[in-house]
């Protein structure tokens, strides 16, 4: 009961103190190095999750995104044991998972979603055992739920490098990504290597997941991939604009996550995810093109004009 009361107290005082908290936050970003690193990393993660998320949403690969994010766990554990940066192990197991899922669904009657389920839960289970065996319990919660404030300099540089690479690939091959996502058969007929493009997107997805590990954590990465992109999808009829909006929502949510996490000492991942969800809910209701409110008004208007 006491715990609940203090929780309510926190919630009630969240908004009155918001302005002064933001002031403190901005001041502290200017002051503390660790906060600057967290800020830079958050922004980059918001951008790349938003950008790659658009392709994941449009190509119906949401479950794949969830799978790869869980499957990087054993890689993180092995890197930890070997004493190397977790990025390398995570990238390897992520890519292996993508390939493994492809092998199972192409060489048996098992459907794609089932083979995704088989492979990723196995990898996730293996990851938990390895991490427990490596005796790094604090690290486990950080990896699962994110702790953006623990970003080290080397992590920040890796995130920046990965982010630059991902954005460069999307920029250079935008035309091919667009046409193969919209009409894969036509693209294959004129000679695009659509299978190669599919696997390349999985590799990019793995890289983005790994880069997001510290800010959102393994379990919730999929929300950063899907929610900002879906929000943008409800607002525009052009892919290029969808990508820009999605990146914007991703960055906004990341900064909110960092802010709340810093000021109120809460894990950053869940805050980021809830921030993206709030934006989604607002757009879902009020979007001028595809919002439920507007649609309801329109069908009402139609009904009344039919009645007249």
């Amino acid at each position: 009961m006491e715990l609940f009361q203090s929780f309510l107290y926190k919630i009630i005082h969240f908004f009155p103190n918001l302005i002064s908290d933001i002031g403190v936050f901005i001041h502290d970003i200017g002051t503390y190095g660790f906060l600057q690193k967290a800020f830079v990393t958050s922004v980059m993660v918001g951008i790349i999750c938003g950008v790659i998320g658009c392709f994941i949403v449009l190509r119906g690969m949401a479950l794949m995104g969830d799978a790869i994010s869980h499957a990087v766990l054993p890689g993180v554990a092995i890197s930890y044991m070997l004493g190397i940066n977790f990025f390398w192990g995570a990238a390897v197991t992520g890519i292996l998972t993508a390939l493994g899922i492809g092998v199972i669904s192409q060489n048996s009657r098992i459907k794609n979603d089932s083979s995704i389920g088989i492979v990723f839960s196995a990898m996730f289970a293996l990851g938990i055992i390895l991490i427990t065996a490596a005796q790094s319990a604090t690290d486990l919660t950080q990896i699962l739920f994110g702790n953006v404030l623990s970003v080290r300099t080397s992590d920040m540089y890796i995130t920046l490098a990965v982010g630059t690479f991902v954005l460069l690939v999307v920029f250079l091959f935008y035309k091919e990504l667009l046409v193969s996502s919209f009409d894969e058969t036509m693209a294959a007929a004129y000679g695009l290597k659509v299978r190669f493009i599919h696997y390349s997107i999985m590799v990019l997805l793995t890289l983005v997941t790994v880069a997001s590990l510290q800010t959102v954590g393994v379990i919730l990465v999929v929300a950063m991939l899907i929610t900002p992109a879906s929000t943008a999808y409800l607002l525009t009829n052009r892919l290029s604009i969808m990508i820009l909006l999605s990146a914007f929502f991703g960055v906004f949510a990341s900064i909110v996550g960092l802010f709340v996490s810093f000021v109120h000492n809460l894990p950053s991942g869940p805050i980021i995810v809830l921030a993206t969800t709030v934006i989604f809910a607002i757009v879902f209701v009020f979007s001028p093109k595809h919002g439920v409110l507007w649609k309801a008004l329109q069908s009402n208007k139609q009904r009344s004009s039919v009645g007249n």
């Binding site: 919209f182 004129y190 525009t236």
Partner: peptide, 23 residues
């Protein structure tokens, strides 16, 4: 493989996602 650039293909209507954000 040598004439692909000279091939235009129109898929069946059911193969297309008509909600795709494209003008």
């Amino acid at each position: 493989s040598e004439v692909r650039k000279n091939i235009a293909y129109l898929p069946q209507r059911s193969a297309i996602d008509w909600d795709f954000p494209i003008l």
